[in-house]
Every structure is written in C-alpha cells, then in structure tokens.
C-alpha cells in the first residue's frame, strides 16, 4: 500500500516537474515583457515588450491545453494588434522619448505604485489564505475529451450558448469600422480644400476662371425662367436643356 502510494506520488512529481518548469519560464517571459512595456522610454521598445508578454501568455494557454486559443492569441495579438501599434508609432513618428520628469499631478506615481501594490498584495493574500468555493465542475467533462476536441466544443458553445454576444460582436465590429473610417476621414477635408485653393492660385488666368462659375449660374437661372415662361414643356427636358446650354455659354464667355 505504501509502495503504491510512493509510486503514485513519484509519478505525479514526474508529470508535474516539466509543467512547473514551463510555467516558471512562461511567467518569467510575461513579467519581463510587462516590465519592458512599463519601463521603456521608446514606444517601439514598449511594443516589442508587449510582443514578448503576449507570447508568454500564449505559452500559458498551451500549458493549459488550450492550443486553439494559443494560436489565436499569437495570430490576433502579435499578428494584428501589435502590428497596428507599430504601424501607428512609425506612421506618426512619435518614437521620440517621453518626458517622464514632468508630473501634472504631484505625487501621482508613488501613489499609483502604492495603491497597485496594496491591491495586488491584498488579492494575493485573499487568494492564499481565504477558503473559497469555485462552484461545480461541468458535467460534460473536459473540453478536450469531447467529440471534435476543444475547437469543436468552443464553436458549439459560441454558436449556441453565446449566440447573442456573438451577434453583438458583429455589431461591435461594424461600429468600430465605421468609427475608424469617420475618424480618419474627418481630417481629410481641410487638406483637400487647401489643395484646391493652392491649385486655383497657381493658375495664371484666375480672373477669368473666377468669372466663369458666376456667369454660368446666371445663365442657368435665366434658362430655367425661360423654360417656366414657355409653359409646361416637361421638367425633365427643361432641366436637361439648361444643363446642356450652360457649359457652352461659359465656354463662349471664357473664349471671349
């Protein structure tokens, strides 16, 4: 009996030790990356620290037998989000070093450090000392043991239990796309106007060009009145003739 227990415990140790080593390495990677994000003055170096931390999180997911989420973590975060960060940093040219000496709120940094340390240590002590209940395990067993594996279980869950949040996610993405388009389009208008003014100023005969639109408007109004005087000859025909007449008149005036 004792021999069986000894063999069993040694087997547990044998399976635990690599996991513990992997966990320690992943935790070191994550914490090193997070320290890099916080400490580095250059935003590009901060983004690289973020990549390191995200790879460590993917390692933790792998350790938790969550292969799909590890792959998604690397693809979405390191492949899309950090690239977006780096693109914005390079695009804006804000990779100059941050002036960290100036504090707008006096004593903010020591206070932030103290509060964060207090909260984290408090939560850790609570987790270590308190007795808490986690709730019941799922009756269906581990996700990896279900038919189709973890990906199928995740898909089944997302498309049945979490269908409404999934649909809300679609709406969220559409709103985000619209927001990004509006935010980047709003600045384009002033520069375009500036470009048009610049091109008009470059023209040698700007006086005749400025005369053109006003005279054509007068001609169009006159044509419309004439059509109105002629009676109900069809609005579509009147509009089309006025549109056709106006450019010819302006071209004649410009030639004169």
């Amino acid at each position: 009996m004792t021999g069986f227990l000894a063999i069993h415990s040694s087997a547990i140790v044998a399976t635990t030790l690599p996991d513990a080593v992997v966990f320690a390495v992943a935790a070191l990677i994550i914490l090193a990356g997070a320290v890099g994000v916080i400490v580095e003055r250059n935003p590009v170096h901060s983004a690289l620290g973020l990549v390191i931390a995200l790879f460590g999180v993917a390692l933790i997911f792998l350790l938790l037998k969550d292969d799909f989420l590890a792959a998604v973590q690397i693809i979405v975060y390191a492949g899309a989000i950090v690239v977006l960060f780096l693109f914005v940093i390079m695009f804006l040219g804000v990779d100059k070093r941050e002036v960290i000496v100036r504090e707008s709120l006096r004593g903010q940094r020591p206070l932030a450090l103290a509060l964060v340390l207090l909260a984290a240590v408090g939560i850790l002590l609570l987790g270590a000392g308190a007795h808490y209940a986690l709730g019941a395990s799922s009756a269906t067993g581990a996700a990896t043991s279900q038919p189709g594996g973890e990906v199928a279980a995740l898909g089944r869950s997302v498309f049945t239990t979490y269908l409404l949040p999934f649909e809300a996610t679609a709406a969220l993405f559409i709103i985000a796309i619209l927001g990004a388009v509006v935010l980047t389009k709003g600045r384009g208008a002033p520069s375009e106007k500036r470009g048009e003014d610049g091109s008009a100023g470059d023209e040698p005969d700007d006086v005749s060009m400025s005369d053109g639109p006003g005279s054509s408007e007068d001609l169009e109004i006159g044509a419309g009145e004439q059509e109105g005087e002629n009676g109900s000859g069809g609005e579509v025909g009147g509009v089309s003739t006025s549109v056709v007449r106006a450019p010819s008149a302006t071209s004649q005036e410009v030639e004169e």
Binding site: K65, G135, A142, A143, E150, L154, S157
Partner: peptide, 11 residues
C-alpha cells in the same frame, strides 16, 4: 475554465 472543465472560459 480548465479547472472547472467549462468551455465558457474559453468563449
């Protein structure tokens, strides 16, 4: 999620 065998955490 891994502790409770619940796929909701992954979702």
């Amino acid at each position: 999620a891994e502790k409770l065998n619940d796929i909701g955490g992954q979702a």
